[in-house]
């Protein structure tokens, strides 16, 4: 039986600490230990991007990271992006432009898009599409997601 490791990280601005199995994936730490269920799991192979969160400001796939690897890090999840009445511009844009249907990929899409706009505040359509290559959506055909990201870029 493997031992446990203590992990401490700042999640959406609040410090969190827990004793966890080494094999606990970051996504399960966020969802099950901390109850932040906005980050989703859609595949096993780092392809779908539904689990995308920010680690020290950069988008990563939290299903391909051990919680232990994020020890000491700052994590931002969809729950840290905006609140009712004070949505993040990307959340507003996804809503306005119908950039979601079932909503399952949406938190990951928004987090990946935020990473793009941080690096490249005024992307063109091709850049948006390339930046989202690691996020799969089965509902929208991406048309309105791309439109939403471009609109959020315009708005900021």
């Amino acid at each position: 039986m493997a031992g446990s490791v203590r992990v401490t990280m700042t999640v959406n601005g609040a410090q969190q600490s827990a004793e966890v199995e080494p094999r606990l994936l970051l996504v399960h730490f966020l969802r099950e230990t901390l109850g932040l269920t906005g980050t989703h799991v859609g595949c096993d192979t780092s392809n779908c991007g539904a689990c995308t969160v920010h680690l020290n400001g950069e988008a990563i796939k939290s299903c391909t990271l051990l919680a232990a690897q994020a020890d000491g890090a700052e994590i931002t999840t969809i729950e840290g992006m905006g609140q009712e009445g004070a949505l993040h511009p990307l959340q507003e844009a996804f809503w306005e432009h119908h950039g979601l249907q079932c909503g399952y990929c949406t938190p990951g899409m928004i987090m990946a898009s935020a990473d793009l706009l941080e690096r490249n505040p005024k992307p063109n359509e091709e850049e948006v599409r390339e930046a989202l290559a690691g996020n799969l959506c089965r509902c929208t055909g991406y048309h309105n997601i791309v439109k939403a990201v471009l609109a959020a870029s315009e708005a900021s």
């Binding site: 969802r31 932040l36 269920t37 906005g38 980050t39 989703h40 799991v41 999840t77 969809i78 729950e79 992006m81 905006g82 609140q83 009712e84 949505l87 959340q91 996804f94 809503w95 306005e96 119908h98 979601l100 909503g103 399952y104 949406t106 938190p107 928004i110």
Partner: peptide
Amino acid sequence: LKRKEDPRLIMGRARYIDD
């Protein structure tokens, strides 16, 4: 119209089975 179902989805507040 913008969708009524979206606020919970874009804020990560929806409840899917695994939630």
